[in-house]
Measured scan of single mutants.
Amino acid sequence: MATGGRRGAAAAPLLVAVAALLLGAAGHLYPGEVCPGMDIRNNLTRLHELENCSVIEGHLQILLMFKTRPEDFRDLSFPKLIMITDYLLLFRVYGLESLKDLFPNLTVIRGSRLFFNYALVIFEMVHLKELGLYNLMNITRGSVRIEKNNELCYLATIDWSRILDSVEDNYIVLNKDDNEECGDICPGTAKGKTNCPATVINGQFVERCWTHSHCQKVCPTICKSHGCTAEGLCCHSECLGNCSQPDDPTKCVACRNFYLDGRCVETCPPPYYHFQDWRCVNFSFCQDLHHKCKNSRRQGCHQYVIHNNKCIPECPSGYTMNSSNLLCTPCLGPCPKVCHLLEGEKTIDSVTSAQELRGCTVINGSLIINIRGGNNLAAELEANLGLIEEISGYLKIRRSYALVSLSFFRKLRLIRGETLEIGNYSFYALDNQNLRQLWDWSKHNLTITQGKLFFHYNPKLCLSEIHKMEEVSGTKGRQERNDIALKTNGDQASCENELLKFSYIRTSFDKI
């Protein structure tokens, strides 16, 4: 039985969820670079991206490699990797027998973001014989899940209580170790020597080791999670996991709180800001991140802002960003909400898709409305799209047979046209069989910064309504002859009103 693990408890099935942008060198404390989270699957090609990484700022997932063999891993080693800020997950990587050479110096898994409450997941690794993470000293947050690894031993010899604050939620089941077939031998045991430290858990006094050649490092209890030197002297209180010299914040392997210019500090002093819960960055760093993602459509890219001495992905609820200094300031009234469309555009074809934009005031991208039916549609669209004030790209209304009016965009005031449909149009209306009105132009103002209007096959939309939009939106004169079809717009509506004058002759039985 794995020490510190839980057996036999019912657990939810383990679901495996399925960018080499360097964020800056980590400095003297770390020998390499800070790398983003990685999802490495199918083959070993991307694994080489770990070569210079000291910190993975995010998670590391290595999974679904069915053609790899043990010899493929023999020359692979990433000794610079010290810390993973989120979680480490391995799933069905064939041929991998140990992690001792792959990650010989991995010391800390912070667990800032977890995989279903777990910071370390080893699942269905069919050839893994031992973990071998002999320098792993601290899992700051989260638990361990090690399950269905039929060859995995050296679990009962690990004292997880020396690595985690609590072992109650560890789930370590259905491994070879369960069948008591392992016969784990710690260093020196074969020669009758006791080389590794022994600890007591559940009444068992057991030597602690990761492999037959690597003991588990056990520091004096007084050192807590700070770690200790090879001689057993406690590291500085700002260290986490390990250090090369005692009581020196510049000799830590990793930091308990924050890293700044080669030393570990309790908090980031001005003019620095907390970033990702582990390091200090200056304003320029946060500003660069903001600008890199301002026009990016890459998933996970955030326009970072500053709030409460932190550089964070977005302002919290009730705050909006001051564009001059990136500071989050309290909103006066309802907060603006910028919604970034991942692929640059979004099609609204149902109430469900409209709900995804609920509360958005600025759309960074283009909207395509293609709704053919739905219950209580006008009210639903207004509830979900009615706060949109600005669209950076274009607005396209296409084959939306259920629409009679666009009044559900009740606050839309600006279409920038930074991206144009077919390279020309910022407003595009095609084949809307029941569209009769755009907006009530006596109450609604709309500016279209650039781009043209396109109207074709809107049989109940009168040309007068379209011409009014040209005047109000500032697009009059931009359109070419064929942009607004004269014969297919309003051709099934009563669009022309003329005053009919009647004269009559009164007659009676005795007068003409």
Rank of each mutant, 00 (worst) to 15 (best):
P313A: 06
W160Y: 06
T194I: 13
H302S: 11
L289V: 10
G241T: 11
S98N: 08
V34K: 13
N202H: 12
N179M: 06
I84Q: 00
N282Q: 10
N150A: 04
W278K: 00
P104E: 01
S284L: 10
V206K: 08
V108K: 02
D277K: 09
K224P: 08
K217T: 08
S98V: 01
L164T: 09
K80D: 01
R162H: 11
V206L: 13
L81V: 03
S324K: 14
Q299V: 07
T250A: 09
P36D: 01
S225C: 05
I84V: 03
R141A: 02
C196V: 13
I146A: 06
Q303A: 06
L174K: 14
V93P: 00
G95H: 14
E180W: 05
W160T: 01
G32S: 03
S98P: 00
L326Q: 12
F103A: 01
V206H: 08
L81H: 00
I163H: 01
K129F: 07
K294L: 04
M38H: 12
G262L: 02
L131V: 10
G227I: 05
E180K: 09
D178C: 10
E207P: 15
Q276Y: 08
R162Q: 14
N309H: 12
P36L: 08
T157E: 14
G183I: 06
N105R: 08
S317R: 00
G183D: 15
L89V: 00
R69A: 14
L120T: 01
G32V: 12
C182W: 04
Q303T: 11
I306K: 01
F283S: 05
P271S: 10
Q204T: 05
N175I: 12
L128Q: 05
E238A: 12
G132P: 01
V200A: 12
V108P: 00
V253Y: 13
R208P: 14
F123L: 13
D72F: 05
G333F: 04
C293Y: 02
Y87I: 00
Y134P: 07
E180I: 03
T157N: 12
F78I: 11
T189Y: 04
C235F: 00
G227F: 08
C53E: 00
V34I: 04
L114W: 02
I158S: 06
H214T: 11
L120Q: 00
L102C: 02
P246I: 14
L106D: 00
L136A: 01
M321L: 02
C209V: 03
T107L: 05
I306Q: 04
T320G: 05
E33N: 06
I109N: 00
D86L: 00
P187A: 12
L96F: 02
K294G: 13
S225V: 06
H290Q: 14
N170Q: 05
L60K: 01
L76F: 10
K148T: 02
L88A: 01
G300E: 05
P220D: 14
S213R: 07
D261S: 10
C331S: 03
A190M: 04
N105F: 03
C186A: 11
G227K: 04
N149G: 04
H302I: 08
R141S: 06
N135W: 02
F285H: 07
T320P: 02
D72T: 11
S324L: 08
T68D: 10
P330I: 10
T107S: 11
E266S: 15
L44M: 07
P330F: 11
G188N: 04
F73I: 14
L47M: 07
L50S: 01
P249Y: 03
D247P: 02
F283Q: 04
A254K: 03
S244I: 14
L128W: 01
D72C: 14
A119H: 00
L152P: 00
T329G: 12
H236G: 06
H59A: 09
M65L: 07
R256G: 03
K292L: 12
R41A: 14
C315R: 00
N295H: 13
D261F: 05
I306P: 02
D177F: 11
T329Y: 12
G262M: 07
S296I: 05
L152F: 01
A190R: 12
C331K: 07
L63C: 10
D169W: 06
R162L: 11
Q303G: 11
Q276W: 03
H59K: 01
L50K: 00
G227P: 12
C255A: 01
R208F: 15
T199S: 06
D178L: 13
I109L: 07
C234R: 01
V281S: 01
V281W: 00
C182T: 10
L47E: 00
D165V: 11
P187Q: 04
P36V: 05
C252V: 00
N309K: 06
S323I: 06
F66L: 15
Y94V: 11
Y118N: 03
T45H: 09
C239L: 00
D72R: 02
N325V: 06
N325C: 11
G188E: 04
R298E: 06
C335T: 07
D86K: 02
K100P: 02
T85M: 05
D277E: 13
I185E: 03
V173C: 15
Q216H: 10
S98L: 01
P197R: 13
T267P: 01
I201Q: 11
R46C: 15
I201S: 13
G37I: 03
V200W: 04
H236I: 01
P36K: 09
R74Q: 04
L332A: 15
S98Q: 02
C209K: 13
P70I: 08
E151Q: 12
H59E: 04
R298G: 12
V200R: 11
V144C: 04
T267A: 14
V281M: 02
S98H: 03
L90C: 11
T140H: 09
T211E: 15
G37Y: 07
G37L: 06
C335W: 09
